[in-house]
C-alpha cells in the first residue's frame, strides 16, 4: 500500500497521459470516422470503394501491429515527425495509430446509424421539397445520431483501454508505468495492480453509465 501512496504522483501522471491519449485520439477518430462514413454512403463508387478498403484493412489488423507500424514505419518511411522531443513524438505517433484504428469502427457505427433511418423518412422529406442539406439536418441526422450514441460510448470505453497498447512503442501510459513500478517495487505488486485497475474502473464506469443513460433518454421509438 505504501508503494501506491509514495508513487501516487507517478501513477496520476500516467493516467493523465492515458486521458490525453483517449481524448485526442477520440476526437480525431470521431471526425475521421464520420468522414469515412460519408465516403462509404456517398453515391460515388470510388469513394465507397476507398472507404470500404480502409475500414476492412484497419479493422482486421491487430492494434498492436498498427501502433508498432506507426512507431517505426511512419517516421522512417513517410518522414513523419511531430516533435524533437521523443516522448512527445511517440505520443503523437501512437495517437495516429489509435485514431486510424478507432475511426474504422466509428465509421461502421455511423454508417449503421444512417442505415437504421427508414428510406421512407428521406422520401417523405424530399416529397415535401426539402433540399439535401435540410433532409440531412432536419430528418436523418436527428434520428441517426440517437442510435449511434450507445455504440459510440462503448467505442470510447474500449479506446480508454486500447491506449495501453501505446506501451508497445514506449509511451509511458498507465500499463507501461505499472510494469515499471512492478520492477521497482517487487513486494507491492498486488496493491499497485489494484491501484491501476481502480484507475481504469474510475475512467470507464462513468462513461458506461453516461452513454447508457443518454442512449435510453434519446432512443427513437419505432
Amino acid at each position: 500500500m505504501e508503494a501506491v501512496v509514495d508513487e501516487l504522483p507517478v501513477i496520476l501522471g500516467a493516467f493523465w497521459l492515458t486521458v490525453k491519449l483517449t481524448v485526442v485520439s477520440g476526437l480525431i477518430s470521431l471526425v475521421w470516422g464520420i468522414a469515412l462514413a460519408a465516403m462509404r454512403v456517398s453515391p460515388l463508387p470510388v469513394l465507397r470503394g476507398a472507404g470500404a478498403l480502409y475500414v476492412n484493412v484497419l479493422r482486421n489488423t491487430p492494434l498492436t501491429l498498427i501502433i508498432v507500424f506507426c512507431g517505426l514505419g511512419l517516421g522512417t518511411v513517410m518522414d513523419v515527425q511531430f516533435s524533437d522531443d521523443l516522448s512527445l513524438n511517440s505520443f503523437w505517433l501512437s495517437i495516429i495509430g489509435l485514431s486510424a484504428y478507432t475511426s474504422a469502427f466509428v465509421c461502421e457505427v455511423v454508417r449503421a446509424g444512417i442505415n437504421t433511418v427508414p428510406l421512407g423518412q428521406a422520401e417523405a422529406a424530399r416529397a415535401i421539397g426539402l433540399t439535401f442539406l435540410q433532409t440531412l439536418r432536419l430528418v436523418i441526422l436527428p434520428q441517426a445520431v440517437r442510435t449511434v450514441i450507445a455504440p459510440l460510448g462503448s467505442l470510447l470505453n474500449a479506446l480508454v483501454k486500447n491506449t495501453t497498447v501505446a506501451a508497445a512503442i514506449g509511451v509511458m501510459e498507465a500499463a507501461l508505468r505499472m510494469k515499471n513500478l512492478f520492477d521497482a517495487h517487487g513486494d507491492a505488486i498486488i496493491p499497485i495492480f489494484l491501484g491501476f485497475a481502480a484507475g481504469f474502473v474510475v475512467l470507464t464506469l462513468p462513461l458506461n453509465l453516461l452513454s447508457g443513460r443518454l442512449a435510453r433518454r434519446l432512443a427513437v421509438v419505432r
Partner: peptide
C-alpha cells in the same frame, strides 16, 4: 465481471507475469 471488463488486457498480462511469480 464489471471489474475485469474495465481493465485493459495488457495490464492483466503484466499482472499475470509479475503476480504469478510472486
Amino acid at each position: 465481471v464489471e471489474a475485469f471488463r474495465a481493465v485493459p488486457v495488457l495490464m492483466l498480462i503484466f499482472f499475470a507475469q509479475y503476480g504469478g511469480s510472486l
